[in-house]
Amino acid sequence: MAILLKDLVNKNVPLNGGHRMCPGCPTPVIVKQILMSTDHPKVAANATGCLEVATTIYPYTAWNIPWIHNAFENAAATIAGIESAFRALIKRGEIAEDRKQTKFIAFGGDGGTYDIGLQSLSGALERGHNFLYVCYDNEGYMNTGIQRSSATPIGANTTTTPVGKVSYGKKEPRKDLISIVAAHHIPYIASAAPHNWMDTMNKAKKAIEVNGPAFMDVISPCVPGWKIRTDEWKGISEAAVKTCFWPLIEIENGEWRLTGESKKIADGKMEKLPVEEFLKSQGRFKHLFKLENKDVIKLIQDDVDKSWNYYKRMAGYND
């Protein structure tokens, strides 16, 4: 069944408003897009991070579905435990018929997914639990005050890759998590961007309903971390896709596909913007527009082009 906006407005919201996320943060939007894409009962596990801290503290507790917090490194392991035990309960006949289709979703930030949580994510994917792992990727440890993570792009200014005379910011390119997860050969993997809500929700629906592990990496522009205005996330999310910094990818049973704007760009129906369009409105890249850092932008463009060409090749386009 297709997702329609007019149906969505009548649905119960799984994550209430009035929580303590920063103004202008798209992460709760992403959570809602993911959870509202299906009507099955849902259980969420949440790694330590912005989402966990800000949406839960009483009296601002915002979750309307069963929710479990765990340590920083093991959301995937916790949800795997829940899912396995639930299957055992079904087998023993202790779960009512209408609850048997309960879906298990884990949320983690990029710190808890790319870095410290990679081991438990990989383990859960390999064991083949039936769950969806969603990484809301704000490209850094924003909850502890903006440190670099392995999802932080080249040239970004963070408190542990400070910009100054010695350094232009982070020097290493970001980790290609989509490919790492793809190497587990799980049934469904996707990257998404919240401005294209229809694309995100369609992907989430597929991911939740598929039998077996699924993974989604969703870009989540961070107001204090990326040093942007509170009304800018949508534009920046869009720019990330249109510059091919953040291609919209879908991998279904090993078959790579591009979706949304990325597909249009690959098909030549839309123009691929230079990466400056993505960088220019973010304070964390401000220093790159100084004369002495001119080369760094080229470095970022090269990195973006390289990975874009790789994804295009994987999706069956010839250079």
Partner: peptide, 15 residues
């Protein structure tokens, strides 16, 4: 590795 309330030590060392 960043963790409140010890992150400032790492940040200072990074600088």
């Amino acid at each position: 590795y960043p963790i409140t309330p010890a992150t400032e030590i790492a940040e200072r060392m990074a600088k």
